[in-house]
């Protein structure tokens, strides 16, 4: 099933580490600003609008990591 991980920038190094240790260094990821949790619905909507194209692109199997 196509999937993509949404990772905030503070946790991006951890995403790299886990992806490599599990043998999936190219696992599709999209970087979000940090923090996201608890920042309110308006901010979540704004972030979603910024990254939706990237998410769709990675789900289609294209786009850079």
């Amino acid at each position: 099933m196509p999937s993509v991980a949404l990772v905030t920038e503070d946790y991006w190094p951890q995403g790299d580490f886990v992806a490599k240790s599990l043998g999936m260094p190219d696992a599709p990821r999209v970087k979000l600003p940090h923090p996201v949790a608890g920042t309110g619905e308006a901010n979540l909507t704004r972030i979603a609008e910024q990254v939706v194209e990237d998410i769709v692109s990675k789900l289609k199997g294209s786009g850079e990591l």
Partner: peptide
Amino acid sequence: GGAQPGSSDM
């Protein structure tokens, strides 16, 4: 286990 603060031990 590879735990390092801030990159794998969060």
